[in-house]
Design a protein around this nucleic acid. Sequence first.
DNA 1: TTGTAGGCGTTATCAG
DNA 2: CTGATAACGCCTACAA
Lengths: 356, 356
Amino acid sequence: MKKPTPSPPEPLADPERITVTLDMVARRAGVSPSTVSRILNGTAVVSEAKRAAVLEATTTLGFVPNPLARGLAGGKTFSIGVVTQAIDSPFYGAALRGIEDALDPAGYSPMFMSAHWDPEAEARCLDVLRSRRVDGIVVLLPRLSDSVLQECAKSLPVVVSGRSLQAPGLFALNFDNYTGGFMATRHLLDLGHTRIAFIAGDQEHPDAAERMRGYRAALEGAGVPFDPALVVPGRYYEISGQQAVDRLLDEGQAFTAIFAANDQMAAGAALSLFRHGLKVPDDVSLVGFDDLPTSMYATPPLSTIQQPAYELGRMAAASVLQLIAGTVPDAVLPAPQLLIRESSQAPSPKTSKARP
Amino acid sequence: MKKPTPSPPEPLADPERITVTLDMVARRAGVSPSTVSRILNGTAVVSEAKRAAVLEATTTLGFVPNPLARGLAGGKTFSIGVVTQAIDSPFYGAALRGIEDALDPAGYSPMFMSAHWDPEAEARCLDVLRSRRVDGIVVLLPRLSDSVLQECAKSLPVVVSGRSLQAPGLFALNFDNYTGGFMATRHLLDLGHTRIAFIAGDQEHPDAAERMRGYRAALEGAGVPFDPALVVPGRYYEISGQQAVDRLLDEGQAFTAIFAANDQMAAGAALSLFRHGLKVPDDVSLVGFDDLPTSMYATPPLSTIQQPAYELGRMAAASVLQLIAGTVPDAVLPAPQLLIRESSQAPSPKTSKARP
DNA sequence: TTGTAGGCGTTATCAG
DNA sequence: CTGATAACGCCTACAA
């Protein structure tokens, strides 16, 4: 499958075209290939004279080691597999950047893949990554069972987020979703709300379940009875937040505030309220979770729980690197933080119900 | 590099642990390695009997070819380098997914890198990607000069977006930003607005310049004089949109509508208006550009120009693949489309100026 | 049609 | 400290 041009060989010489090999460097420096390799990798001590010669040859020849050959021979590819659920998710963006930032200075490259919340797809991602011989794997919010993950960790360093697992070669970075959910609800309670609707995430996700647990605990702590009618399931997407509020309103539920399990659903909820002529926060207070970059630019800016996505990415990447180096990671995610903006306020006495 | 375990052979058999090689498949099928290779790659015609035997052996052994070895031997890595400016940008998200979707079925893997709008960083990305021996490169909104890009294309298939370049081994996918800018402005004009502020993007970016050109052309076409005082520079981030409107308002400029060169700045603009007590669209109409996934959930939903980010990604990826295959890409981006939502309406007679 | 041999660019293992 | 000499796992002439 050559270029369809059977013309004379390279009219315009392209210096970068021909690959410079380690052997060529060795020859030019008058040493053996192994010596070059050792110097370039710092694998052993070498005489200053040769080191200098090799370095000179390396630069003048513009030698760049071939990662493929390195991987094949040495068993390391200097790449880390990263499986996300949706690479286009606003939440992941920051995390991916954190991973990039942590890996780059170490000479590692991330290899991103999306599993689309599908356990089977996630398994395929792991397979592809393994077949590509990545040196380690980061799984953001895995959907696969703990055992599968632990199994995977037996043959490769693995870091997961959103689980609390313990296993050799496995490190889990868990955000305190429970406390986050608690704080959000508590904030609304403190403001004077008692009829607080909750748009839940998919309870299959541990983090969603935790946020809900925080919601209930806060209510109980305040002596406010938990009302199942105020809890609507969502799926973390905007549309599900919108539908949730549509439903709440259709059912004629009385509430003065809404706590959405993530900012995306909060945005959907806001749209539903807008369509129904309800104002935030005058008629209904709204609190989200995640603090997406866009949330502070919502109208009005959204009160939410800050989730350190960028830090999560950085720490996860740093942790795989530690695992690879044989160190035991000790990273701990920052505690949840409540960001009070303008979407929440005390309930106005007049409109104590969404549907007066 | 054998296993450091001279213990009895595999107490708990771990089938995935030991790598199954092509040779093993060959042996089990009773054929030579080359035959296996030929069958698996469809490189040559083989007798049905052997083909069946090989396929059987492949599946029962769970053989997965090693991409590293394949790359080393065949000179291909089956990976495509993708340089974006910011992996966490809401606009890129969809594009990256498109790339993923187009590459995956072809057995290729994307390798994402962020250049942060910095030409030097972009050059480094290209170097890293080349050193990783990617088979082709996609550069989304390059900041590097045309000549550097063309030079790069001499040794590697390159696809760029946001430029109109022509060169061997180089394919450019360009969105019609001019028409998009024209349509957005025209929409406002049609509504009856004549004082239309424009929040521009960095004029260094060709696409930003084009959108501005469209803005001016629409004004001229409608016989509305272009007023430099209504044009404020931005940098495509939310904050710059907010600052732009702050400035417009501080200066006491009279306008009834704002066209922001992208949705992110439109979000910032909306926040500024909100802070100043101005309502969208009652006091000021607002139109953006890009149609970010979040824009339809803004309050009110944002009128904007739809930019097919996902398609862009898909087409870019498909095009590199074509380039690699020796075909000439012929992809053409969909034409811009105006999405009229609720952030734009006819100017109310009372508030014909932001500052009456 | 099918097998054999050699090589892709490095690293690792061993002697010296 | 340094240099041969094997691998690494696969592909591709070349030969049969």
